[in-house]
Computed example of a mutant assay.
Amino acid sequence: MGWGFFAHQRINELAVFSLPPAMLVLYKSQQAYLKVHATDADKRRYIVAAEGPRHYIDLDRYGPPPYDWIPRSWQAALQQFGEDSLLQNGIVPWYIPQMMKQLTKAFQEKDLDKILHLSADLGHYVADAHVPLHACSNHNGQFTGQEGIHGLWESRIPELLADAGFNYWCGKAAYIRDVPAFVWQIVCTSALAADTVLRAEKSLSLRTPADARYAWENRKGKLVRTYAASYTKAYQQLLGNMVERRMRAAIHAVACCWYTAWVDAGQPPLTALVQKRPKENTILPDTGKMIGRVEE
C-alpha cells in the first residue's frame, strides 16, 4: 500500500482546509467522512482484482530518467506498451485524471454520495503518487535486502513523528491547468527520490546493530516487531525531513485536485448538499471502470 492508514487519513483531513469557502462549506461538514474513507482504496485491493495497479507506477522499468518520453495519454500508452505491460508496471498517473473527470461529473450532477466517494478515493491515489517507493520497482527494498523499508517510510515515520512537529501548512488550493502534466510531475519527483530513500536506510542499517534497529511494541493487545523509535528518528534526519515534505505536498495536491474538479464543473453551489447525509459502507465499492477502459 502507499501511505499507512494514519497518513492517508491525515492527508485527506487536512486537505479540506486548503479549499475556498464555497467548497469548505461542504467539505468541512464531511471532513470525518473523507478521513474515515481515505483508506477504502487500499481495502478494496483485497476484493477488486483491478485495484492494485491504480496505486503505483514502476517508472524505473521504463528506463532511466527523465521520463518525458512516456505517453501522458492513456490511449497512446496502450498503443505503445500494451495493456498487460501497463498493468504490471502500475497506472496511477493515468488513473488520477480519469478520477478527476468522474468527480467533475459528480459535481455537475450534485450527487453527494459520488462527490464524497470520489473525493476520498482521489485523495488516496494522489497521496500514493507522492510516495517515492510507489514510483520504483524496488518498492519494499526486496532487491537490496531492505525488506520493510516501505512501512518504515510511509507508516512508521508519520505515526511516530507527525504529531511531534510536522509542518502541515501548504497554502490555498490552486487550479490545475494541465492535469496530466501536474500528476506526472508528482510521480517523476517521487521516482527521483527513491534512490535517496533506499540509500539512506542502507547506510544507516550498516552502522546500526540489528538489536538497535528493531523493538517490540504492544498494539491492540499484541506484541508487534517494528522499527525502534531511535532508528526511525535517525532515518528521518538522514532524509532531511523528506517524509514531512512529501506529506505536505500531498495535502496541497489533493486540495488542488478537488478544487480543479469543482471549477471544471462550473463551480456549482454546494450549500444545499450540506443538509444531506451520505450513505455509509464499511468499504465503498469500486469507483473506477475496469483498468483497460480508462478514458481520455
Rank of each mutant, 00 (worst) to 15 (best):
M23N: 04
I157Q: 00
S205G: 06
D58I: 09
A234C: 09
F107C: 06
Q142Y: 09
V179Y: 03
R72Q: 12
E295V: 10
A127Q: 03
L26S: 02
R54I: 01
A22T: 04
K276T: 08
A32N: 10
Q237N: 09
F81Y: 15
W74Y: 12
H134P: 05
R207F: 06
Q88R: 15
Q267R: 14
W74A: 03
A174E: 12
K43L: 15
P97G: 03
Y235I: 11
G292W: 11
W74I: 02
Y95M: 05
E201K: 13
Y95L: 06
A255N: 05
P158C: 14
T282G: 15
A174G: 07
G145W: 12
A249R: 07
H8G: 04
G148V: 11
E295W: 14
I186Y: 08
A261E: 02
H117R: 10
A106Y: 00
C136R: 04
P132H: 07
S119E: 02
A212Q: 14
A200L: 09
T271K: 13
T271N: 13
A253F: 03
E217T: 15
L223Y: 12
N167C: 11
Y168L: 12
I283F: 08
T144R: 15
L223E: 11
Y56W: 11
P180T: 00
T287L: 12
W94H: 08
V187G: 06
K233R: 14
V36H: 13
V131H: 04
S205R: 14
F17R: 02
